[in-house]
Design a binder for these strands. Structure first.
Lengths: 217, 217
DNA sequence: TAGATTGTTAATCGATTAACAATC
DNA sequence: TAGATTGTTAATCGATTAACAATC
């Protein structure tokens, strides 16, 4: 078995990768407007970061611009797609066909980011069956089989808090290596499994906190 | 008019406030389990932070624990509610009764965090009218009137990207001072208005990036 | 009092920004 | 070549952690 060489992956701030979707969307717009070249100043202003930060963020992934000229929109777009893993379609399976799961399943913004929801899963047999032409709710027991068949890579957990850990384990057993967890609990998973937590109330509670602070209300 | 004294608000990391919802939910659980006293070690372990960080986070808001003993669950819960502005009900109005808006309107997790959706607004007259017993979709033109009548404080923007800026301006005119924006655009608003941005694809694209990196897929 | 655990200080670690040499 | 703008270095700023004095 060939030994893995110690990976010389450049390290970069975690926040860097979370700014890439902003860059991606800005570039998509420039592209639509047939703008071929854009400066860090112009683009930074559009997305609300400093030009320095934009250049630094990009620099972690190589020398992507042209000195004296700016960034080639099409080229940078392709690079960012590669970095975000959007150069190929990412297939999602949603576990938990409740309100949240159904809403995500219908979210139209995924497509332009190379993401597609191919299946839903639920334990409740009343929910099993086709949702529309493209989408079906499968029994949870078919998780492994459908993952394989449909090529699902990311499991989206939209189950009640109390079930989340158990469902995460099922997903891992079924072969998923990436979990996008909407339940407000920390999950225990093997180290090779990547978990991304989503907490929908954080944003609005931050607002609430600011209201309380600023306006004393 | 009494002059505002230069506010001696303690400054703290932005990330601090985003951890408070985690603390809140952990404490709620302890409360349900009739646990009256909890150590930073126990609680930190539960939410997945270091005890040091938990104590530091809390310390920005005063001396909230008991040395040698831990934190009084009920007391800390009350304090955190106060800090997050959850000691009173926060009323939300959702602008844009599309899929995303409707999904949020039906989200059951708001209630326990002191948040409630009291109205939806849309320009499309086909959407006007009652959704269920509690909730109605109003014409966008009634924004100011309903904000006042219902005591709405936070405007949730779930409109298409192209309309977001215009709608933000309408919300500000209607008297909203806090916007929770789901449209992927930076909004230009007066400085006294607080905007919280929500970007649903960031999390899953972060996963996608990790998949690309770790598994080369 | 002895044991425990907080609150806080100082050290470390990480992220952002400013400035400018490199280079198109 | 002159002008422009990147890529990168070093300085600054901010957040986290470790350690321990304070104190229940």
């Amino acid at each position: 078995m060939p030994e893995r060489t110690p990976e010389e992956l450049v390290t970069f701030p975690k926040a860097t990768i979370s700014r890439f979707p902003l860059y991606f969307r800005a570039l998509t717009e420039y592209n639509h407007q047939n703008i071929g070249l854009v400066s860090s100043e112009e683009m930074a202003q559009k997305v609300g970061v400093t030009p320095s930060q934009l250049r630094k963020d990009l620099s972690y992934f190589g020398s992507l611009g042209i000195r004296g000229a700016g960034y080639d929109v099409a080229y940078l777009l392709a690079k960012i797609k590669e970095i975000l893993g959007m150069d190929r379609q990412r297939r999602l399976g949603i576990i938990g066909a409740g309100r949240m799961g159904m809403a995500l399943a219908g979210y139209s913004g995924f497509k332009q980011h190379g993401l597609e929801v191919l299946a839903l899963f639920d334990i409740d047999r009343a929910k099993w069956g086709p949702v529309n032409e493209q989408l079906t709710v499968f029994p949870l027991s078919e998780l492994a089989a459908q993952r394989e068949k449909l090529g699902l890579e990311i499991a989206v957990l939209t189950v009640p808090k109390a079930e989340a850990q158990k469902v995460a384990e099922l997903a891992v057993e079924a072969g998923f290596r990436a979990l996008w967890n909407f339940a407000p609990v920390r999950l225990e998973v093997p180290p090779e499994v990547i978990v991304q937590y989503e907490d929908i109330v954080v944003g609005v509670l931050t607002l609430s906190h600011h209201l309380a602070r600023k306006f004393g209300t």
